[in-house]
Structures are given as structure tokens and as C-alpha cells.
Write a protein that binds this DNA or RNA. Structure first.
Lengths: 191, 191, 191, 191
DNA sequence: TATGAATGAGACTTCATTCAT
DNA sequence: TATGAATGAAGTCTCATTCAT
């Protein structure tokens, strides 16, 4: 019997990696990094502990790859926005944000949880801060075009608001008044 | 050696408990729950590990008591505010908030970090949500008195803003533009 | 009930350390470093695995302390020899060596085994080489005084002989002809 | 694709086995038995881990076969020597020994290292002792013919010397005075 | 014959907790 | 009240070995 082909192996490898990363993602998002053990991840992924180390150098490495895969997904949004007229752009940003919060709550949860762990995962920290800066700049530009008195101050407030809403949504879950907040903000900034 | 009186013992007990909780607080706020060991706490408190278990049933119990003690400290502020005129009250709340962020960053850090660990410390979760609700109600009342159109919506925004600013201040540390934000908000809501 | 006194604790600590080091010593001398697990050491010492780490930072640290304790024991012999007349001195060195081989075979075994592990325990390596050099120098001096043609060459031969006999004794155990060799060498060099 | 003939298969088998044993040899000689993993051996041999288990029952079995193959290589030397005149024979043995030490240091290293692991590889132990005995007998015969007083004692000394020099050469590496020792011994025993 | 993904026992180590004193 | 030596469960990670292909 001949051995598996390279292509077959590639498929198998990718499937296993996917299973492990999915398990790691949901568990860490729910319980945090320290409270999630390799044994739990392997068990939820339906593989042996050992296999995990075929694909990731360490628990830390697994989390890093997890973060990178999440970040990549969210990356291409800003470019599209720059060309729109300011009001539409604002409205699009808000829409994007609330959609994100609703549909990818776990991404936020994971990143927020890891950001707290500054000592160990300062690269997440760096990334998150950089992202935030980027959004503040974009908002500032739009708000200036819309004629606001203090566009930078206002942009910072909106950025803080995003973080706060994200955090609250994370904590409150089910019954959080996301819709109300969204309406309120659209009225305030995009009317 | 005459035995200690009951009163003396009570004093000793309280001092030891205080030392332990202070040590636990500063260590956990800095390094997180999982990264802080009982040995570290006992060592920094200057007591033995054994003694710690005279006063607290477990590490988890110690953290619970810690959280309760922090929450209590912050509790008596709301009462004083109710009697003021709305503008002063708003201004006082903002002032209280920014002072809190500046001077008790560690309290925030601890609570936020624990809140992430929902599975294990869901009581923190409950408390934090209840507090938030309380503040939203107070703000709503004040904003209504100040004639805002949608006082509830606005109150929720402010509450989210507080959380967001708190989170960002936590993450960004040194160079965060707290002063600018404070001025901006005072201008906006208390002028 | 009052806690143990410092002195009591010191005794307890020393006893436990002794038990652990003795167990580690005999097991590693017999099986080698890699083939001896912490679990085996703890079990033979009659303590828990955890206790071992109260006294030693790591398995490697345990071995280092083991080696240092062995080396210290053997250290004070050379000084006493220098003052004797050459023949007596030679005889004393031989006597010391054969006694050592006979009575502390396990010391030799441990050091030889670790010396093989150059990558990990190069400090043993260094120590062993330095010791060897020291002995060669001493022997050279004595042989020169005894009128040998090539005292350095002869000293090197004797040093190699010591190592060879040590190694063979290690390997052959029970039935090795140590006595015969001792007689032969005393006749040859100290007559 | 016509199936391979039995003969072709035999060739392939032997080549693969050779590659594996060569890799195992160089790695274990360098790093020791425990520090050399099956994965390393397979990788250096350019075959899969699975294939290795087609030819060897276990890691231990691989090492055994390795040792046997090394021993066999060294085996045919003694026969040739018996017919020479004693002085030439002695000189030849010495020459053979020093050549061995110089050019096949890795063989020595491997055997010595394994010999230390008596528990696990006692067969190496047995073999080495038997060899040693054989050489002692041969030397004794030659030394008797050369008229030495105590040929057995002298033979044992030479055997021990060989072991000692081998060990020291192993430990000291680069700067060891092999040449000096060789000259010294040739002068002493073959002049 | 040959591959390498997968397993699982076992290695070292940490740490909350207990208990004799 | 107070100590700290001792425990043991659980954590991360390694690696010889198996097996479907």
C-alpha cells in the first residue's frame, strides 16, 4: 500500500489544525488563557494532547497563531471606506462596528482577554493599540470634514465609546441594548 | 506569658487579614489571578502560607473578599450626589470618575481582569452589571432634569464611555490623553 | 501549639535534603542521569515529587549540588602529601587512589557518567580535567625527585592508568583484580 | 510498474538499514542515547520514522545491532597478530590502538557511553569485558616471550592504560598529548 | 517498501492546600 | 495565633511507537 500523497497529507494537516484552533479559540474566549489547559483543548478538538504539538510549538505559539488568524480576517475594511462621502463613511463605520460586536463577539472577547495579559502577550497589546490609533485618525478626518469643532476630541470619544460598548456587550451578553445604542449614535453623528 | 484577650486577638486578626488582602490586591492587579500564587501573596504580606488559610478558605475565597472590599469602598458616593443640582451633580460624577481612573487604576484593572473570567468569578460579573445599571439610572435622571431629548440613550452612552475610557486607560497606560477627554466631556455635558 | 523553631526546621530540612541527595546519588550512579526520573528519586527517598522542588530548583540543579558535595569531600588530600619524602608520597598517592576506588566506587561512577554528558554538565568536565592536571603535576614533581628520565611522560602514564583502572573497576565490579594491580604498581614505582 | 525482484528488495533493505544505522551511530556517539530521538535518526538518515520500525523492533534493538556491527568491524585484528615476532606484535598492537583512538574516537565514545548504562545495555558490558580479557591474554603471552618478570601484571597494566588513555582522549579532545604517550610507550615496551 | 499523522504514557515542574508542631 | 515542611493533583511538553494509506 502506498503512503498518502503530499496533497492528502496537506488536507489532513489542515483539518487537524483547524479543529485544534477552533477548540482553542472557543475555550480561551470563554475561560481565558490560563484557565484553558492543553488537555481541554485537545479533548474538545477530539485529538490527543500530543498531536497539538505536531502543529504548534507551545501553548503560547498556538495562541499567537490564533490571534494572527483573527486579525487577518478583520483587516481589509478601512481601505474601502476612504473613498466614500463623510456621512456615508461614518455610517458605514458604525454599521461595521455594531455588526462586528454582534456577530464576532468571541473575537472581541479573545482579544480583550489577551490584551489584559500584557506581560505575556504584549504583541496583542501593540496590535490593538495600533488599530485603535488608526481608527481615531480616520474618524478625526471624517469629523473634520463634517465640520465638528474639535474633531480629534470627538474622535477619541467615539473610539472610547466603541471600546466601552464592546466591553459591555461582552459582559452583559444576551440582554444588552445594542440596537438602542446603535440608533442613538446614528442619529447623533450621521443624521 | 498571659494569654491574649479576646479584644487583642480581634485586632491581630484584622491586621493580618488586612496585610494579606493588600498584598493579594497589588499582586493580582499587577499580574493577574492565575499568575499570582499563594506563596507570593503570603511572602509579600509577610506572613506564612498557613496563616492565610486561617482567614480565607481558599484562593478563590480570598479574591471574593477582596472584590467585596473594593466595591464597598466605592459605594458611598452615589448617596451624596442625589441632593445636588443636576449640573453640579453631573460635574461631580465626571470628576469622581476621572479621579477614580487616575488614582485607583488598580481597582479597575482588578475588576476588569476578573470580569473576563466569567466562568470562575461570575459574581464579579453580576456586581459590575448591577453597578452599571445604577449609574445609568442616576445619569438618566440628571439628564432628564437637564432637558435632554433621550436621557436614557444619552445615559447609556455615557456609561459605555466610562467603561471604554477605563479600558483604554488600562491598556494604554502612561501616555493616554485622559485630561483632554475630561475637558471635552465637561464642556459637552456640564457647560 | 507553637510552630516549630528555626532549629527544628533546619534539622528537618537537612534530613530531607540528605534523603533526596542520597537517593539521587545511588540511582544516577547506577542508571545514569537521563534514565533516572524525578519520580524514581522521590520514591526511593520516600518523599513526594513536590518536596524535591522545595530544595532544588530543578533536576539539573540537584545533580550539580550532588557533584559539588562529592568533590568537596575529596578535596583536602593533596595538601598533606606535599611535605612527605618522594617515595612515601608516591606510596601515599597510590594508596589513596586504590582506597578511593574500592570504597567510593559510586563517586567515580557518577562523575564518569556525568563527564560523558559533556553538553549538559560541562562543569563536571572542567573540574575533572583540572583535577587530572593537578595530579599529573604533583606526580611529575615526585618522579623528577626520584630521578626518572622523563618524569612528565611517566606522570601522564600513571594518570592514564588511574583513569583506566577506575574505569575498569567500574565496569567489572566484584571480581576485578585491584589488589594485584596495586601490588604491581607499588613494586614498580615505590620500591 | 513491474514489482521488484527479491534480489532488488534485499539490496534496498540493506541500503536503508545502513543509512539508518549510520545516522544512529553518529548521533548517539555525539549526543548520547537518551538525547537522540528516533525522529532525529530518521531525519538524518533521510527516511521516515515508520520505515525505521520495519527494520528494527525498537530504539533499543537498533542500538544493539549498532553495537554488534561496530564490534564485528574491530574483530579480525587479533588473528593477524599471532604469527608475528613478539616485539613486532607488541608494536603493532600499540600502533593499532593509537590509530583506533585517533580515527575511530566515535566508536570508543559510543561504547563507553553505553557501557555506563549498565542496567539497560548490560550486553555491551559483557562484550567489552570479554574483549578486554582477550587482549590481556594476548599481551601476557607476548610479554612472557619478551622475558618480563610478571607478564600477567604487566599485561593488566597495559590494558588499563589503554582504557585510561581512551577515556582521557575522549574527555580532553583536541589538545590531548596522544603522540607523546605513544612515543613513551613504544620506547618502554618495544625498544 | 514507505510515509507521517496520530497516540498515550510518562517526563519535569508548579502550586493550592494540609497538618504537625 | 502562627509556621513552613510536605503532599499530590494537574499542567506543559516529549517521544517511542502504531497504523491507515
Amino acid at each position: 500500500m502506498s503512503p498518502r500523497t503530499t496533497a492528502q497529507n496537506a488536507v489532513i494537516r489542515q483539518q487537524s489544525q483547524r479543529k485544534i484552533m477552533d477548540a482553542a479559540f472557543s475555550l480561551i474566549a470563554k475561560n481565558g488563557y490560563e484557565a484553558t489547559s492543553i488537555a481541554m483543548i485537545a479533548s474538545q478538538a477530539g485529538v490527543s494532547k500530543g498531536l497539538l504539538y505536531n502543529y504548534f510549538d507551545s501553548k503560547e505559539d498556538l495562541v499567537k497563531q490564533l490571534v494572527y488568524s483573527i486579525i487577518e480576517i478583520g483587516d481589509d475594511n478601512i481601505g474601502q471606506i476612504e473613498s466614500l462621502d463623510p456621512k456615508e463613511a461614518m455610517s458605514m463605520i458604525f454599521n461595521w462596528f455594531f455588526t462586528e460586536i454582534r456577530e464576532k463577539a468571541d473575537h472581541w472577547r479573545l482579544l480583550t482577554a489577551l490584551t489584559m495579559n500584557i506581560e505575556r502577550f504584549d504583541f496583542v497589546h501593540e496590535i490593538v493599540i495600533a488599530k485603535m490609533q488608526e481608527y481615531v485618525s480616520l474618524l478625526e478626518k471624517l469629523l473634520a470634514e463634517l465640520g465638528y469643532d474639535d474633531p480629534l476630541g470627538e474622535a477619541r470619544v467615539i473610539a472610547a465609546l466603541f471600546d466601552g460598548i464592546g466591553l459591555q456587550a461582552l459582559i452583559a451578553r444576551e440582554d444588552y441594548y445594542l440596537n438602542d445604542l446603535e440608533q442613538f449614535m446614528l442619529n447623533k453623528y450621521c443624521k
